[in-house]
Design a protein around this nucleic acid. Structure first.
Length: 292
DNA sequence: GCTTTATCCCGATTTACCTCA
DNA sequence: AATGAGGTAAATCGGGATAAA
């Protein structure tokens, strides 16, 4: 079976990940394993397990994640004491009724989502988000703010599995006193954040690699230039290689010979005397390394 | 094998809410 | 104290992929 997970994995395999620090890639999470199976209820169960990334940015703490959002502004009525206390004691002063159009435009899809997702009917209505907030009958799209406890539980669950099967979703929603759809959305957004973070890490890693390679390239260019200089110098007539004072004319053969040079240089001079003069002394490789 | 339907997921975007200058 | 900018996260939208009927 060639399912979506396999395709995703295939795509990711095309991105070399850098688990060993020698290779690099853009796969978020550094890669992942997948499981896909059918449950007894007929739903597909996807299990994405993130590898431990070799390069990671520290996740922001819960405090930093939620910052000042600790105070729940949700209208959720919760059975969890702390959640209930938080929810009951705080109502958003800025809760405005301003997005009628959005509610109307998204009504069709929202209805579909609600119908398809809202199956936890056994839960008392009072334990869920109020219907007024839910169906937009007040015209407001209230934004849920998760409590610390809710976020912690979601994070813990996410650490275990970054995707949920329907039963896990239901259970989690029940424990968190949220709708399954909200749990699902949270996981989707959480995966998106994970991917974004990993992309940032990968970009930083690639940036450093690029800088390192640029330095190495510069060094090699310089080395190459020096080698070419040596090669050019050795191919020049000796009278260009040595100062004039060190050269002398052989009285017998009327050829240039190096006064201070040995027999080899004299031979080389004899050999090279007919060689064409270079058009310029240093050849075309005189650019400063910095110009490369 | 093809079509339809339901479900899941993702990327992009919108929106509500918060912090801070 | 008020306010606007910017950031964050929940929610929405549109669409692709898949399995089952």
């Amino acid at each position: 079976m060639r399912n979506k997970e396999e395709k995703t994995l295939f795509k990711m395999m095309n991105m070399v990940h850098h688990e060993d620090g020698l290779t690099l890639g853009l796969g978020y999470g550094g890669g992942r394993t997948t499981e896909s199976k059918l449950s007894s209820d007929g739903h597909r169960h996807h299990q994405f397990k993130l590898y431990e990334p070799s390069l990671t940015l520290g996740w922001p703490s819960e405090d930093s994640i939620h910052g000042g959002y600790d105070e729940a502004t949700t209208t959720t009525t919760t059975t969890v004491t702390t959640m209930a206390a938080a929810a009951a004691s705080h109502s958003s002063p800025n809760s405005t009724v301003s997005s009628f159009s959005n509610v109307n435009l998204s009504a069709v899809k929202r209805e579909r989502d609600i119908v398809s997702e809202e199956v936890d009917l056994e839960r008392p209505v009072s334990s869920r988000i109020s219907d007024e907030d839910e169906d937009g009958s007040t015209g407001a799209r209230k934004k849920l703010r998760l409590t610390k406890e809710q976020s912690a539980l979601l994070e813990d669950s996410f650490k275990e599995h970054s995707t949920l099967n329907p039963k896990q979703k239901q259970d989690l929603a029940h424990r968190l006193n949220l709708r399954p759809r909200q749990v699902e959305v949270w996981f989707q957004n959480r995966r998106a954040r994970t991917k974004l973070k990993q992309t940032e890490v990968d970009c930083e890693f690639l940036k450093r690699c690029c800088e390192s390679l640029t330095d190495e390239n510069r060094r090699l260019q310089k080395e190459l230039q020096e080698l070419k200089m040596i090669k050019y110098a050795s191919s020049m007539p000796l009278y260009m290689q040595f100062p004039a004072a060190t050269l002398s004319m052989c009285p017998s053969c009327e050829r240039i010979a190096s006064a201070g040079g040995g027999e080899d240089k004299a031979k080389a001079a004899t050999f090279l005397i007919g060689a064409p003069k270079p058009t310029h002394l240093y050849g075309p490789f005189t650019n400063s390394p910095a110009a490369c």
